[in-house]
């Protein structure tokens, strides 16, 4: 039996709704008044800073650090909205920004995946679809083993992997991912053959490594600092071109005569067709920011990153070079056979 609700109740409900609206308005007006004083000139509107990956990840941390340093150092009084539009290996956020052609009020984080994704995964938008602004930092990849591993040096590892193919297992975050490209380079340079095991996330790789289920893995230093300090993981080598200041005893792969250089870049790009003056404005501002003490210690040092600033033109050239190198590597690894 359908009861018709009494007029009274409907009225009461509506009244409650109205009251709530009123209360919400009063509580909110207090917060909003402070942020409404924007300068006359650019940026006179809030900036949408798109992170194409999930909250809590490296890109998210990067974007939030930028906005916080800019604000704390008084370099910019622009309002930033950091927005995570994750999914589809970054392609959802990238498609969103690519669709905002000519918009001067949108920025997006860039990682090396913006270069490799279109090649390996055949993503629709590559770096050429965005306005390059600046490269800010380079992340290193460490090759690590569990503390009780039989491999004492990187040579031990490579020798074992040369002796018999696929006995040494390498945990990574997915074929075509950046760690698999590093492994590809290493295998080519040394003639070794490792058994690559894909996991869903860096966290799962760490668990498998700590539990001894895989023999070796690569990781960004900031993800494993805790384990390194506790002595549960042991670094064998770093894939960059120089030793890390925080880990002076860990050799680079190049020192050990393996012709491998793999660094992940972090930068900022804008939508296609962003005004060049606007791109330059951000490039200059970000350059100033990277020179601050706060950025150097609280971001770069803490996360073991290298300062790697490049302005718009150099940044674009660098991405073009990286694209060429990755295409060659992927070709040799046979990652793009189908699809």
């Amino acid at each position: 039996m359908m009861t018709t609700p009494s007029k009274f109740r409907i009225w009461a409900m509506s009244l409650v709704a109205l009251l709530t609206v009123g209360m919400a308005f009063t509580s909110w007006s207090g917060q909003a008044s402070g942020a409404s004083q924007l300068p006359e000139n650019y940026p006179d509107q809030p900036i949408e800073f798109v992170v194409q990956y999930a909250p809590g990840g490296g890109s998210d941390n990067f974007a939030r650090m930028i906005t916080s340093v800019l604000a704390q150092e008084g370099l910019s009084d622009a309002t930033f909205n950091v927005v995570n539009r994750e999914g589809g290996s970054g392609s959802i956020g990238q498609a969103y920004v690519a669709g905002k052609a000519g918009d001067n009020y949108t920025l997006m984080t860039m990682t090396s995946a913006l270069v490799t994704g279109p090649i390996v995964l055949d993503l629709e938008h590559n770096y050429e679809d965005f306005t390059p602004i600046a490269r800010l930092a380079a992340d290193q990849l460490l090759i690590v083993v569990p503390a009780d591993s039989e491999f004492q040096t990187i040579e031990d590892l490579i020798e074992a992997a040369q002796a018999e193919p696929d006995v040494v297992s390498w945990g990574g975050t997915g074929l075509g991912g950046e760690d698999s490209l590093l492994l590809g380079q290493l295998e080519q340079a040394s003639g070794a053959n490792l058994n690559y095991i894909s996991f869903e996330s860096g966290g799962e790789v760490q668990v498998a490594l700590l539990g001894g289920h895989v023999d070796v893995a690569s990781s960004n230093p900031n993800e494993i600092i805790g384990q390194l300090e506790a002595g549960e993981l042991r670094p064998l080598a770093v894939a960059g071109d120089a030793r890390l200041t925080a880990l002076p005893d860990v050799p680079t792969l190049q020192e050990k005569e393996f012709d491998v250089l793999y660094q992940q870049a972090r930068g900022v790009v804008g939508p296609p067709g962003m005004d060049p003056e606007v791109a330059q404005y951000w490039a200059d501002l970000l350059k100033e920011m990277t020179e601050t003490e706060r950025w150097q210690t609280e971001y770069l040092e803490k996360n073991m990153l290298l300062d790697a600033y490049l302005g718009p033109e150099e940044f674009a050239e660098w991405m073009a070079e990286e694209t060429e190198a990755t295409e060659a590597l992927v070709e040799e690894m046979g990652l793009n056979e189908t699809s």
Binding site: G87, G88, S89, S91, I92, V120, L121, L123, H125, G174
Partner: peptide, 17 residues
């Protein structure tokens, strides 16, 4: 992730995840 290959995405990037 095991093969680095898209499955049933029909070329649509947003289906990759």
């Amino acid at each position: 992730i095991m093969s680095g290959r898209p499955r049933f995405t029909f070329g649509e990037d947003w289906l990759l995840s």
